[in-house]
Amino acid sequence: MTARPSPFASTAIERHTISILVDNEPGVLARVIGLFSGRGYNIESLTVAEVDRDATLSRVTIVTSGTPMIIEQIKAQLGRLVPVHRVHDLTLEGPFVERETALVKVAGTGEKRVEALRLADVFKARVVDATITSFVFEITGQGEELDRFIGLMAELGLVGVSRTGVVAMSRGPGGI
C-alpha cells in the first residue's frame, strides 16, 4: 500500500537560499546560529540587517546545504523559533536574485598592478581605495563571479578579502 511518492526520498545534497523575517531583538541571531550549530546543519553564508525600523524587523538570508529532508527540517526548526515571522525557501519558490559584495585588497607595483586594474575593469569592480602600491576593489555579483575575481587577484598580490555573504530576493512583484 502506498501513498504519493515522498519528495524527501532523495539523498542528494542540495544548496538552498532561505530568507527569514525576524523580530530585531537581542539574541535573535544567536538563536538562529545556535539552531544550526546545535543540530549540525551547514551554514555556507548568513547575512542579517534590519529592514523595517518601524516594525523592528530584520531579514536574515541563509545559504545552506543538505538533503531535501534536512532542508525541510531546517525550515521547520526555523519556523518554530518564537521571534521568526516568516521562512521562505527562495530556491524552491521560483526564480530569485542572489548578490554578494566583496572588498578585495591587492598590493603590488608594475605590470601586476596594471593587470589587476585591467581585470577589475573587466569584472566591473570599483576602486574604492588606492595608494601607490595598493588598491581596494569593491565587487558585487554572484558568488561564483566573486570567486573568479578573487582567484585571479591571488596571482596579482592579493592581501585580503572581506565578503558580505549572500543577500537574496525573489523575482517578480511578490513580497516575503
Binding site: 501513498a3 524527501f8 529532508m69 527540517q73 521547520a76 526548526q77 519556523g79 518554530r80
Partner: peptide, 14 residues
C-alpha cells in the same frame, strides 16, 4: 502540532 517533528527521523507519507 510541531512541524519540525515531522520527517525528522522517519519519512512519513501523510
Amino acid at each position: 502540532i510541531d512541524p519540525s517533528s515531522i520527517n525528522k527521523n522517519v519519512r512519513v507519507d501523510v
